[in-house]
Amino acid sequence: MADLPIQRNPWKITKAKPIYDNPWLQITEFDVINPSGGNGIYGKVHFKNRAIGIVALTRENELYLVGQYRFPLDRYSWELPEGGGPFDQTPLEAAKRELLEETGLVAAKWEELLTMDLSNSVTDEVATIFIATDLEQRAPEPEPTEQLMTLKRPLSQVFDWVMQGEITDSITVAAVLKLKVLGYC
């Protein structure tokens, strides 16, 4: 990133008004002077946790997917094991907890694959995605609000599902595409 030019912030905030707040997110409306000098407003969704994704990869190059009904989308979604990691916990600690919760898996080896902004036009949500290998199966420990299914499929098949638009979760799509570029499938 040292070669990419960095610009100063052209936005000026004149007022911040909290709109909504719960344990997971906060919405703020800002009165602003935009980059062209005009007055306007900008809404921001602040996430109180980091998004975590885990590529649980077997020796046979299969990965685990978790299926669940996603309330905001009003549809079922197949995706990597994912969840929220409190900022007072390291991303790796959160990933280990989420993997066990959702799949019952414990991994002996961990490698960070990717950190990304999820929707930087209206949120500040950041995701960290790990590759977990040398897996051991234990009992899942889902949260009471979760009704989950798990699948183990060849990475090449999951890549096909991503390319066909059958898997649309952004963390899963980004991780699988990066794995493809790195030669995993």
Rank of each mutant, 00 (worst) to 15 (best):
E93R: 01
W110R: 13
D124L: 01
F159E: 15
P18W: 03
E82I: 12
A108P: 04
P144E: 14
F159A: 11
D74S: 12
E141Q: 14
L57I: 11
A51S: 14
W161I: 01
P144K: 13
I13A: 11
E79T: 08
T90P: 10
M1A: 12
R138P: 00
G43P: 05
A127N: 06
P10E: 03
R50I: 04
K15I: 06
E60S: 13
S121A: 02
A175H: 10
A175R: 08
V173A: 02
V122E: 07
Q68R: 13
P18H: 01
T168Q: 07
W110G: 11
E125L: 09
T103I: 08
L80V: 11
W161M: 15
T28M: 06
Q137Y: 07
K15S: 11
P140N: 08
P86V: 00
L99M: 10
D160P: 02
K152F: 01
E82L: 06
K15C: 10
R50V: 05
L114G: 02
P142Q: 07
L92D: 12
T128I: 05
A175K: 10
E79N: 10
R59C: 04
W161Q: 05
P142A: 04
V32L: 07
E79L: 06
K109L: 13
P18M: 03
A51P: 02
R70I: 04
Q164I: 02
G83F: 05
K180H: 14
L65E: 05
K12A: 04
N22K: 05
V126F: 03
D160E: 11
E143M: 13
M149Y: 10
T172G: 06
S170P: 00
P81L: 07
S170Y: 09
G85F: 05
V126G: 00
S77I: 11
L151T: 02
A94Y: 03
Q164M: 13
N120Y: 08
K48Q: 09
Y184P: 13
W78M: 13
G37E: 07
E29K: 15
D31L: 07
D74G: 10
G83K: 05
A132F: 06
P81K: 09
Y42P: 00
L25R: 08
P142H: 06
H46V: 00
L113N: 08
G83R: 04
N22E: 09
A2D: 15
D31V: 01
D117H: 05
P10I: 09
N9F: 01
V45M: 13
I13N: 06
A175I: 02
K44W: 12
Q157D: 14
I41G: 10
R97E: 15
P5D: 05
A108D: 15
A51G: 11
T133K: 08
D117C: 01
L151W: 03
T123N: 01
K178H: 04
L105A: 04
V162K: 03
Y20F: 14
T90D: 08
P35A: 02
N9D: 13
I27A: 05
K48M: 13
D169M: 02
E62V: 07
K48T: 09
